[in-house]
Design a protein around this nucleic acid. Structure first.
Lengths: 244, 244
DNA sequence: CGCTATTTTGAGCCGCGTCAATACGGGTGG
DNA sequence: CCACCCGTATTGACGCGGCTCAAAATAGCG
């Protein structure tokens, strides 16, 4: 039924659930909860993993039962359009939630696949909502997390040049990784150029060319999937100056 | 403080709040609530209007106090980027909610302006959440409405040709209007070409040209802002066939 | 060491944006 | 009722950014 629920030999229950001590706590659901409330929450959370590259967390039309918090690794969400072509909707780093768009019709609206070795916390939605009724701050947190995702979607909506898109993309990854305790300037892309291009609505070749151009201009250092941001300020200017 | 709260001579309290009898009930918050719960909800709702074209409902960074349900008319939400250029985020028809993206940071994330004579129901968010804690189905409704907005944002994200965008835009308007009891095939655009173009990330001239082309091909009839969809099926095909 | 997927690089083309001019319509004042 | 004005919409000419097609370079892997 649920994908990648193959007879893996990992007993999910063995993994200790400890939102209270999780380094992602303030990014994830427990944000702003009391100790007692966090422990109630913990009792609902099931850890799941490890998933490997290309393992699916869920697929379009899977029944919606839980939302997922990325614990480690990187996920990609995507659709397949009528012509059979993939449409990357986003990349999801540790501390970020996946599956919020499935609440409405109670079916998953996209596919979610691991890009590398990854693990997630599974949050059964029905029980979360029941708990949220009794804990106002949890309800509030849920509303905020949902609201944040609505605003975020506007980020890439503008009509931007290839350079602007790629600069913004790199900066977005960097800042999100920074918030999770990783380096702000050095990052390893978990996804191939094709996925980046698809996500940014560009051709793979264009992404490649812009990477090269950025490197020649001394803005970044590129070695395969390792990227170093050398001139963050210049990138920032590039990313939100209009193509006037 | 709140924009367009000029000394209008309309006493807001005079307008009868009756979510129970509102034709938009099943589109709006009361969706799936019991009679008793609806009446509790009604006691929170304040009607506001009429607003006139160019009246702002709220602006970026206004403190977030309420979400708004469009009761009549049409609204546009937009941002102004660093270069001072407007970015249309969406159009909002009767029965649709505005301001959900402001829950998170408790500030409005965009500007909302009436395109024609319009009115809204104002739903004080704090009281809604308080009520939602006590009425699980209201909480559920809120989650669903938020979730729906997340999914919707993907609609225009693809890289589509000008014709695909415009066909999809017209179909989206038509289907939303149909759900609200209006004609499915005849519609009056409340917004100028410039706003359509901006929303679809196209040039005004391109929108104009595609309208003309569609008309020559017998797909639509256009008279200024009145549009008639003559070949809905063909438009549908056009809108989601890949540019292969 | 060969096989394959990924990435890079080059050449040519096309859709759409830009610039510019014209047409249309609705409102205002004489 | 007409002349005038101004914002919106249409139409045409042209250039460019990014896509397509094609091929070579590079890396990972058995």
């Amino acid at each position: 039924m649920s994908p990648s629920a193959s007879p893996v030999t990992v007993d999910l229950k063995q993994i200790k659930h400890a939102c209270g001590t999780c380094s992602l706590a303030e990014l994830c659901l427990p944000m702003g909860l009391s100790k007692q409330d966090v422990s109630k929450l913990e009792s609902l959370v099931a850890s799941r993993g490890p998933l490997h590259a290309d393992d699916h967390l869920f697929r379009v039309n899977d029944p919606f039962r839980a939302i997922y918090a990325v614990r480690g690794g990187c996920f990609k969400t995507y659709l397949v359009d009528d012509a059979g072509k993939e449409q990357v909707l986003g990349f999801h780093l540790p501390g970020e939630l996946i599956g919020l768009d499935a609440i409405w019709p109670e079916k998953h609206q996209c596919n979610a696949v691991a890009l590398d070795t990854a693990s997630v916390c599974e949050l059964p939605f029905g029980e979360i909502t029941r708990l949220a009724s009794r804990i106002p701050s949890l309800q509030q947190t849920m509303f905020r997390l949902l609201s944040r995702d609505i605003g975020d979607s506007h980020t890439l909506a503008g009509d931007l040049t290839a350079e602007q898109r790629i600069a913004a993309f790199l900066l977005s990854l960097a800042s999100r990784l920074k918030a999770r305790g990783y380096s702000e300037s050095r990052l390893t892309l978990a996804m191939p150029r094709r996925d980046i291009a698809n996500f940014l609505r560009l051709a793979t070749e264009t992404v490649s060319r812009v990477f090269t151009r950025f490197e020649k201009d001394g803005l970044i250092g590129v070695d395969r999937r390792d990227v170093e941001l050398l001139e963050i300020e210049k990138l920032r200017k590039l990313s939100h100056q209009s193509p006037c």
